[in-house]
Amino acid sequence: MLKSLLSVLALGVAVGAGFAADGPIAEISNGLVRAKVHLPDGRTGFYRGTRFDWAGVVSDLEYSGHNYYPRWFDRVDATIRDFVYEGASIAASPCTAVTGPAEEFRTPLGYDEAKPGGTFVKIGVGVLRKKDAAAYDSFHLYEVVDGGRWSVRKTGSAVEFVQELSDAGSGYGYLYKKTVALTKGQSQMVLSHSLKNTGKVAIRSTVYNHNFLYLDRRPPGPDFVIRFPFEIRGAEVPPMAEVRGKQVGYTKILSGEDRVQMAVSGFGAEAKDYDIRIENKAAGAGVRITGDRPLSRIFLWSIRAPLSVEPFVNVEIQPGGEFSWKIVYDYYTLPTDRR
């Protein structure tokens, strides 16, 4: 069914605790997997920050009795830069308050060239206003000058997003398509993307997926293991983590304000190394994440709530050119550890 074009309005400065209400959503299912897919809306959307792509924010994906992407924060506060601990609760900023596989085009387009008060482009968000001469800050909530033209089409097991945007001031323009689809007969979700450069300037950025995995609300700890297809080399291993050949594990359950973050190195120049497995032996569940483009970086970020393995891919598109990429999520179960 074709939904009407969504009106994406300028983002206001005042953002209250109700900012993370569900807003418009599409619920999809293939009989094995079901998920909520949040739709872009500048007034009532679940995510209205200027950091992550507004298309295809996923939450509460359920498979075989497991919830992979429940909400990991308790409230949203515009006075917070990233997130803060409040006893047993976590408060997040509008730019961080997102769930599930959440993608960000890390490098904004035209920011350095824009003068204070001028405009620049954040793919998947829109044309933003540069506030001052300070360096770009992905945690800052920028004014949305033009959210572009969004269209959304939903079927029972998929949602397709299209964003068309042009910024005469910077010369950037694009046609961005993204589909979130559950594969028929499989416990699998596929994110398919294409980005066409319709502007006058080359698009150069890096896109990564934050992958806010919060499996059954279990904090990262020794029951989790992260597997890669390559030997991990040269990594600076932080406290509470350990590297074992091709694996990263935890030496304790993260609690309080514990944080484990590290760059993961050792991958090669081929897409076959974009192959990540995250398993929890106590829950008896896991997910495999594969991509069809070579990696440029992998980063692990984890706190007492989500465990995020972030794969990065470089994007360079000349005017008139197009770039496509795909990420596949396979959800599975395994024998539980009944110690």
Score class of each variant (00 low, 15 high):
residue 1 M to N: 10
residue 4 S to A: 13
residue 5 L to G: 11
residue 9 L to A: 08
residue 11 L to M: 09
residue 16 G to K: 03
residue 21 A to Q: 12
residue 22 D to H: 09
residue 27 E to P: 01
residue 28 I to T: 07
residue 29 S to G: 07
residue 32 L to V: 04
residue 42 G to T: 02
residue 45 G to T: 02
residue 47 Y to K: 11
residue 47 Y to W: 06
residue 48 R to Q: 07
residue 48 R to K: 12
residue 52 F to E: 05
residue 53 D to M: 13
residue 53 D to E: 14
residue 66 H to N: 13
residue 68 Y to P: 13
residue 70 P to G: 01
residue 74 D to S: 11
residue 78 A to R: 05
residue 90 I to Y: 06
residue 100 G to E: 03
residue 101 P to G: 03
residue 103 E to P: 02
residue 103 E to D: 15
residue 114 A to W: 02
residue 117 G to D: 12
residue 119 T to N: 13
residue 125 V to I: 13
residue 126 G to M: 08
residue 131 K to M: 07
residue 137 D to I: 01
residue 138 S to W: 08
residue 139 F to L: 13
residue 140 H to G: 00
residue 140 H to S: 09
residue 142 Y to R: 10
residue 152 V to P: 00
residue 159 V to D: 09
residue 161 F to T: 06
residue 168 A to G: 10
residue 168 A to Y: 03
residue 187 S to K: 00
residue 188 Q to Y: 00
residue 189 M to S: 04
residue 189 M to A: 13
residue 189 M to I: 03
residue 189 M to W: 05
residue 204 R to V: 10
residue 223 D to H: 10
residue 227 R to V: 04
residue 230 F to C: 03
residue 231 E to R: 15
residue 235 A to I: 01
residue 241 A to H: 07
residue 242 E to R: 14
residue 258 D to L: 11
residue 272 K to M: 05
residue 272 K to A: 13
residue 291 G to L: 02
residue 297 R to I: 00
residue 299 F to R: 09
residue 307 L to T: 07
residue 310 E to W: 03
residue 313 V to C: 09
residue 319 P to V: 07
residue 319 P to C: 07
residue 322 E to S: 14
residue 328 V to E: 14
residue 331 Y to D: 06
residue 333 T to C: 08
